[in-house]
Design a protein around this nucleic acid. Structure first.
Lengths: 337, 337
DNA sequence: CTGAAAGCGCTTACAG
DNA sequence: CTGAAAGCGCTTACAG
C-alpha cells in the first residue's frame, strides 16, 4: 500500500511538499501540485487517516455508544445527534456496549479514539466513564446522573414521567398496579420505579413485593414477566412497564392467554417507540424527547470542545401519550388533568 | 494527558519495558511490572489506541456502512454482523453514508480506518468502493453487484422477490398494478422494477408509464406518491411498493382519503420490516433474510482477512409473507403456489 | 516555492 | 529481565 513517501519519491519531491500538495496548500506551485497528484493517482495512494489523527492529536469524530446498536429505540436520538455533528463537519460513529468492559464502546472510551462521546448504555460502568472523561474528551451521559469534570448530564424526568403514568392509571380506577422492572443497574429504571411508588403512596395504596416483576427491557423479558403472572394466577388491574418493548411482550403474553389488554387489564409503557402506535391495542406510554436529547447532547459536546461547560445538568420533561391500552370507556368516565 | 513515556519515567524504566509490562508480557519481572502499573494508575494513563493501530497497521475493527444509521430496517442485519464480529474478537463500528462523498462512510473507506467493510448504502458510489477495496481491506457489498478484486457480493434475489409479489397480486385478480419506485440509482430498486415488469408481461398486461410513481424509500415518499394518485384520480387496482416504508406511507395517504387498503385496493411492500406486521392492515411483503445477510457478510470479511475469497457472488432467496393488505376474501378464492 | 527534520504514541526485534 | 532504537504514516514549523 502506497504511502505519502512513495508518492513523494515518484513525483521527485520531498514528502513535506507532497503533503502540502495533497492537502491543497497554496505553498506549492501549480506544476508540482499536478505532478504530486498524478503520482498519487498512479500509485492509487490512500492517505492513512490514523497516522493523521495521531499527528494532529484529534480525530474529528464523535462516538455514540448505545447498549444495543440494533435497538428500535434510538432512531430519533441518532437523527438529532447526526444533525448537529454534520453541521459541525464532524464524523459520527456508533458503537455497541454489548460485552461491558470488553465491548467496543469500552475500548473507544479507554483509548481516546474519538474527540467526544455520547452515552446511552446502562451497561457501561461509571468507573469507565470517569476515567475516560477529560478535557479533550468530553462525555455526555443520557442514562444516569454522574457528577464529574468533563461529564455532562442530560436527564429526562423519569420519575415524573412514571408518576404521571401511574397517576393516570389510578385516575381510571385501577388499584392493583404491577411494575415490570428493567435491569436493576439501570438508573432510568430505578427512577421510574420511584415515580411509580410515589404515585401509589399518594393514593394510600400499599405496594406489595409480589407486584414487582423483573424484566430486562426486552420484549422477551416482558413476555415472561406476564407469563409468570398468569401461571401464578397473580393478576393485576393494570401494569406499568418500565419500557415499551417489555410492554409489547406483555401484550403478546396476555393475547395468548385470552386476556384483553385495554379491556380486562390496563397497560402503560415508557419511551413511545415507533411500534407503540401500531401495536394492538395502541400503547399508552410516556414519551421522552429523544430527538431533542440527541441534538442537545451533540451541542454540549461541541460547546465543551470549545471550552464551555454547562453549569448544571440539563433536565428534560416527558409527556404522557394516551392511546388505547388503558381502556377507552373507562377513560371517558374519568377526569384526566 | 499521560503517555507511556511519562509512565516509564515515573516508574524509572525504559518505555519498551513499560510497554511490555502494560501488555502483560512475561519478559518483565513481577516487581517492575508492579512499579509500572502503579505509575500508570497514578498518572491515570490511558493508552492511545490510534498510535497502536498505526504501529501495528491494523485496527481490529470492522466498519458497517449504512445509508441511514437510524433506519428501522437494519436491526436484524446488525445483529447478524455483531454476532460474528464479537466471536472473532473484533470491534464493530457503524457509520452513516449520508452526505455521499463527504460522509463519514466515504472517509472511512478512503482512509483505511478499519480492517474490513460491509456496505448497505446505495448512496456510496462504486468508484469509492473500488478504490478502497484492497487486500488488507476487503469489502462486502449487500446492495449492488460489483465485480472486482477484494469486493464480495452478497445479493438477494430482488427481481425474483418482486416477481413473486406481483404474480401473487395478479393471481388475486388485480390487473392495474402500479409501481412505487425507490431512487433510480438504487440497484435494488431497479431489480425490483424488472421483476414487477416481468410478472406483468407474462400475463400479457401492458405496463403504462403513468403506472410508475417515483418515491425515495421513505414513508413520506410513499405518502406523496399515493397522494398524487388520488389527486390525479389515477387509481390502480393494486400497488407494488419497492419497500415497506413507502408502503406504510401509502396506507397513511389512502386512509386519509377514505380508501381502504386490503379492500378497495391491494398493496404489497418489500423488506418485511418490523412495523409491517403491526400496521393496519398488516402488510403483505417480501422478506429478505437480513440476519443471515449480516452473518454471511461478516463471515466473508474474516475469510478474506485470512486470504480466502469466495469464487462467486452469494445469492440469497426471498420469501413472500402474506398478510392482509391484499385482501382476505379475494385471497381465499384463488390459488397461490 | 521546496526540503530536511522533528515528533505524534505506540510496539518489537535486537543487544546486552 | 531491561534498554536503546527504529519505525508505523502523517503534518508542520523552520530554513533556505
Amino acid at each position: 500500500m502506497a504511502t505519502i513517501k512513495d508518492v513523494a519519491s515518484l513525483a521527485g519531491v520531498a514528502v513535506s511538499t507532497a503533503s502540502y500538495a495533497l492537502n491543497g496548500s497554496n505553498k506549492v506551485s501549480e506544476e508540482t501540485r499536478k505532478r504530486v497528484v498524478d503520482a498519487a493517482r498512479k500509485l492509487n495512494y490512500r492517505p492513512n487517516g490514523i497516522a493523521r489523527d495521531l499527528k494532529l492529536n484529534r480525530t474529528n469524530t464523535i462516538g455514540l455508544m448505545l447498549s444495543d446498536l440494533s435497538g428500535p429505540f434510538y432512531s430519533e436520538l441518532i437523527k438529532g445527534v447526526q444533525d448537529v455533528t454534520v453541521t459541525h463537519g464532524y464524523d459520527l460513529i456508533a458503537v455497541s456496549s454489548i460485552g461491558g468492559r470488553g465491548s467496543t464502546a469500552a475500548k473507544f472510551l479507554r483509548e481516546k479514539r474519538v474527540d467526544g462521546v455520547i452515552i446511552l448504555a446502562h451497561n457501561i460502568e461509571n468507573s469507565i466513564i470517569l476515567s475516560a472523561a477529560r478535557k479533550d474528551m468530553p462525555v455526555v451521559v443520557l442514562d444516569r446522573s454522574l457528577a464529574a469534570d468533563h461529564v455532562i448530564n442530560i436527564l429526562v424526568d423519569n420519575e415524573g414521567g412514571a408518576y404521571k403514568a401511574v397517576s393516570y392509571l389510578l385516575s381510571l380506577g385501577y388499584k392493583k398496579i404491577f411494575y415490570i422492572s428493567g435491569p436493576k443497574v439501570s438508573s432510568d429504571n430505578m427512577k421510574r420505579f420511584h415515580g411509580y411508588k410515589k404515585a401509589l403512596e399518594e393514593q394510600g395504596i400499599e405496594f406489595l413485593p409480589n407486584w414487582l416483576y423483573q424484566g430486562d427491557f426486552t420484549r422477551t423479558g416482558g413476555y415472561y414477566a406476564a407469563k409468570s403472572m398468569i401461571m401464578q394466577s397473580n393478576l393485576p388491574d393494570a401494569i406499568f412497564s418500565a419500557n415499551d418493548e417489555m410492554a409489547i411482550g406483555v401484550i403478546d403474553a396476555f393475547k395468548e392467554a385470552g386476556i384483553r389488554v385495554g379491556e380486562d387489564i390496563g397497560l402503560v409503557g415508557f419511551d413511545d417507540i415507533q411500534l407503540a402506535e401500531y401495536v394492538s391495542p395502541p400503547l399508552t406510554t410516556v414519551r421522552q424527547p429523544m430527538r431533542e436529547m440527541g441534538t442537545l447532547a451533540a451541542q454540549q459536546i461541541f460547546h465543551s470542545i470549545n471550552g464551555i461547560f454547562p453549569k448544571e445538568c440539563i433536565f428534560l420533561d416527558t409527556q404522557l401519550i394516551i392511546r388505547e391500552s388503558c381502556g377507552w370507556r373507562k377513560r371517558k368516565l374519568s377526569q384526566i388533568k
